[in-house]
Nucleic acid binder design. Structure first.
Lengths: 233, 233
DNA sequence: CGGTACGTTGAGTCATATCAACCATAGTGG
DNA sequence: CCACTATGGTTGATATGACTCAACGTACCG
């Protein structure tokens, strides 16, 4: 997970090298710089709630955000995470619909809020930007479809193994080999779509098989090929 | 489900009134007309297969197409259907990745194939079109996320009830009240993400409760509120 | 008329949810 | 400083939804 040095203007923000922003002109970046609002939030802060109207979208500068839907019985289902250089909330801005997910800070994060009309203006006037944003959306859509298939067909054990591999791939590990994302058992269960107790039992099963090292929320993957085998990937 | 009269040129195709094509100029429609290939396919025909490279996308003129992913054990998971005026395959075109789903004809269909560069050119040069296509993608993404939550949290019974309501909403019924989409029990199970036998048992349970009338693949919903109640919607 | 695909039913099993009790930890207020 | 409380983690016992397997019925098709 890369850290991007914060700065007064977008033109020197290193996120600028991201495929989405690479094609923006100095002028367009200036426009964003002048209209964005940058704020830092603590763990647990809600950025926007399911059902609310969005006035813009957010670009994650640092930290981690979890994006989830709330099921009818109140249980949350995490649909993805956002890390530095990821965008959140743009879906609702583009479709001009109320937010269909809630965004909550998982690890202290700095977010830049960019107003709706700037996004729409960019899509309409900058073809390269439009294609890049489409690519992003399509990538998310492909991942969502893949997850539907997984969750419908795989067992909880297979899914947990897959999620662990995925988290390792998306967030990496520190120098001790510990996953760079810290989740409660309940949050893990809200990704996998199962009961908290099942996650606990399976985690210790993986530990006993020598695939993991556990220390509270610190998870170290010892046998990646083994987990991949379990996950069928 | 509307039928759109086929015609030599796109400018007189009634799909043109679709939000996506509404903003195209006469010239742009002409460009599509000259480069599209229109073909009719029978039930069971594969339009494209998961993993294949796409040379363009398809616009459904008539008929129904099912879009599915194949799980590692070969079981298919239907992720959506496409009906007249829907686009298929554009995701892979935009992301320039191999297709991540398979498209198979469910009810005899006529499709127009439109080459990749035309789509990309439109996105880059026609801002209104870009926004409309983004909206479409975002809508699909929202639906996918909702389905992830459903499939992770609801029981098979709840999901089946929900799917029946959804099919009624998407495809409507004929004058006898029978669903305008005909699916095998196995296909139903491949939407819901369960075993064929479970679908059969639940369908007859719904029938016994007076919520459905069944006659082979012909399904007539008798108690829509009841099904909605079961589905928690 | 036999074959193939689809539909149905029953019985048995297993994965997973649920319920309940308990421990560990950290933050809070008197 | 310590009891108090909340939150998260763990474990065991039990219940059950849903899958699997297996047999059989049905209908259409060449």
């Amino acid at each position: 997970m890369t850290e991007y040095p914060l700065d007064s203007g977008c033109s020197s923000c290193t996120i600028r090298t991201h495929p989405l922003f690479r094609h923006l002109s100095e002028e367009e970046l200036q426009d964003i710089s002048l209209n964005k609002i940058t704020e830092t939030h603590k763990r647990g802060s809600i950025i926007y709630r399911e059902g609310s109207r969005m006035k813009g979208f957010y670009c994650v500068h640092s930290g981690i955000v979890k994006i989830y839907k709330t099921g009818f019985d109140g249980k949350e289902q995490i649909v993805r995470f956002a890390k530095p250089a990821d965008l959140i909330g743009y879906r609702s801005v583009v479709s001009n619909e109320p937010a269909c997910t809630t965004a909550e800070i998982l690890q202290e994060a700095t977010l830049c809020h960019i107003p709706t009309d700037i996004l729409l203006h960019l899509v309409k006037t900058n073809g390269e930007f439009a294609v890049a944003l489409m690519k992003l959306t399509c990538k998310e859509l492909g991942e969502a479809n893949a997850y539907i298939t997984d969750i419908a067909q795989k067992t909880v054990k297979e899914r947990l193994a897959e999620i662990l591999i995925h988290l390792d791939w998306e967030f990496g590990t520190d120098d001790l080999g510990i996953l760079n994302i810290s989740l409660t058992r309940e949050e893990l269960s809200n990704i996998v779509g199962t009961a908290t107790e099942s996650i606990i039992r399976l985690l210790s099963e993986f530990k006993n098989e020598g695939a993991l090292e556990l220390n509270g929320r610190k998870i170290k993957i010892l046998d990646k090929p083994g987990l991949k085998y379990i996950a069928n990937i």
